[in-house]
Write a protein that binds this DNA or RNA. Structure first.
Lengths: 196, 196
DNA sequence: ATTATAAAACGTAACGTAACGTAACGCAAC
DNA sequence: GTTGCGTTACGTTACGTTACGTTTTATAAT
């Protein structure tokens, strides 16, 4: 986290901030399709090469903009696993049900999967909630509230994957009932029962 | 199915086929990013206006190309629900694990969600397997093999959503073990048990 | 039956626009 | 003084559209 003390003229912090702000505004107002380097340069009053020095293309810029203003859904207060998980899923879905959710999905789809930028984006924006969910499940298992006999990674994908699925495919709505049902089914699969 | 016998010169079937073939080839060889109307026109030896008469933009063309050469994963032979569902999931994952899977995801993300073309693409390429899965589950429930107390739609999303999730996010591999685990967990959630 | 007319789709060529990505240059910060 | 940011300017690619002449077909007129 220490500044590497690079030589020469340092990047203009203000310019960088204005670039990200402009990118984010365009993203929410016009969508990912309109997020071009030209448009961001024009809107932020910055030259194109200034942008290209920091980001290789428009989709990296989009990811940076989305990361710079994203809380990251992690919270999940509550005593029982069900209440904590339900709370998290509801706020996750609420955050993704907006236009921004679709922008995130489009950005991810368009991004180079190998890029370091993409990996950071994945971890911070996409997978952070999944990690929080893993913690919740492991704690509950330690309390004996559930039995994790199945593959935990797959179970997590079955909880968080459907959100993306509906977001991208759009065959059914993203609402709170969806959040509740996912949790209910997932808990059914890991219920600690007598019959075994 | 009767030919509408419209007046004037009928569309050249051969040209349409060559367009779709060229589009599909570019898609698999170079990816969605390289699929431009110009490139397809050049490769297929067809004029650009001929393409634009049929498709509004490159992503519609991509969807058409993907649909034209897609078997559609529906099969699922087997006696028990588990074997049928596992068979289907394995072939689904096998089909999506290739480069084509990612092209499909990118195409879907880039497409206009309202377009009729997009809806057809969704139904034929994305949701057809989900529909087949619904049929399998309903049959098994009728046989008393499982108990569908939860929301069936959500359960289906929890089975098929994770495939897209891993495909798009890429945090874990798409392999046969994944298919098997999904089925195992899903069946656990709908198991017909004595304890209720 | 033959001929003419209208309609539709074809290919070619060209257009203005948008966005791309980079080279070159000055200047600011170290 | 050197390094590297920021800007201006440029060439390139692809877009989506238009105009044009040609080809193919169905229908109407002779």
């Amino acid at each position: 986290m220490s500044p590497p003390k690079r030589r020469g003229r340092p990047p203009n912090q203000l310019a960088q901030a204005r670039i990200l702000k402009a990118a984010h505004d365009i993203l929410t107002e016009d969508g990912f399709g309109r997020l071009t380097v030209e448009a961001v340069a024009a809107r932020s009053g910055v030259g194109k090469p200034t942008i290209y020095r920091q980001w290789a293309n428009a989709s990296e810029l989009a990811m940076a903009a989305l990361m710079s203003r994203d809380p990251g859904i992690i919270a999940g207060g509550g005593t029982s696993l069900r209440s904590a998980l339900t709370g998290q899923m509801r706020s996750l879905i609420q955050a993704f049900a907006t236009t921004r959710g679709r922008q995130i999905a489009m950005t991810l789809a368009a991004a180079d999967p190998e890029s370091e930028f993409t990996k950071a984006f994945r971890n911070q924006v996409i997978l952070s909630s999944r990690e929080a969910g893993r913690a919740l499940l492991l704690e509950a298992a330690a309390r004996g509230e559930i039995m994790l006999q199945q593959d935990l990674e797959v179970l997590l994908d079955m909880i968080y994957g459907p959100v993306f699925y509906r977001l991208l495919v759009g065959h059914r709505p993203l609402d709170t009932g969806f959040a509740d049902s996912i949790v209910a089914i997932a808990l059914e699969a890991v219920a600690a029962r007598a019959d075994r």
